[in-house]
Computed example of a mutant assay.
Amino acid sequence: MLQTAIEMDKAAMVLKLLGDKTRLTMVKLLEKNECCVCEFVEIFQVSQPSISQHLRKLRDVGLVKEERKGQWIFYSLNKQNEHFPFVEQLLLQLPDQDFKLKELEEKGTRITCC
């Protein structure tokens, strides 16, 4: 299957968005996991509004999707997004970040909102 090249302006937009270390780490975590805002707050040790702002930027371009489960919203990587093949190539170059979620599990703070 031939992969369509991404337009230069779209590539620049995605790279600018993922140029933020927090957002890049979030996307890497979401590559294999669903996460709630509270988990990101715990991982990055920043405020809930700050995490929500990062997620909103990723959601606005369709890189992440949200699913409501009860009163909580869980985020995951949107693999159907037109930019996903481009993002996927970037993610392949990055070290695994799942240890951050394992640390939350060990501390008993994984999915603290549920």
Rank of each mutant, 00 (worst) to 15 (best):
V64N: 06
D60F: 09
F84M: 05
G70V: 05
L94M: 11
R68M: 06
V61P: 02
L90R: 05
N81P: 03
Q71W: 12
F86C: 03
W72T: 06
H83S: 13
K69Y: 09
S76A: 15
H83C: 12
E66H: 05
Q71S: 12
E82W: 13
Q93E: 15
L91R: 08
V61F: 04
D60M: 12
K65A: 08
G70R: 04
K65P: 00
V64E: 09
L63K: 08
N78S: 08
L63A: 01
F84N: 03
L90W: 02
Q80M: 10
Y75T: 06
Q80A: 12
V64Q: 02
K69C: 11
G70K: 04
V61M: 05
I73P: 06
F86I: 08
L63C: 02
G70N: 01
G62C: 07
L77K: 07
Q89R: 13
L90N: 05
L91Q: 04
L90M: 13
L91V: 02
V64W: 00
E82Q: 15
H83D: 11
G70S: 07
G62F: 06
L91I: 07
Q71F: 14
Q89V: 12
L91S: 03
H83V: 11
I73K: 10
V61L: 01
E66Q: 08
G70P: 02
Q71E: 11
F84T: 04
V87Y: 02
Q93S: 14
V64T: 00
Y75R: 06
P85F: 01
L94P: 06
G70Y: 04
S76P: 10
E88F: 15
E67S: 04
E82K: 15
I73W: 10
L77T: 00
W72E: 12
H83P: 08
Q80F: 05
F74L: 02
N81S: 11
E66M: 10
K69R: 14
I73S: 06
L63Y: 07
L77G: 09
E66D: 09
H83I: 10
L90Q: 11
L94N: 04
Q89K: 11
R68E: 00
L63H: 02
L63N: 03
D60P: 10
K79I: 09
L90Y: 13
G70A: 04
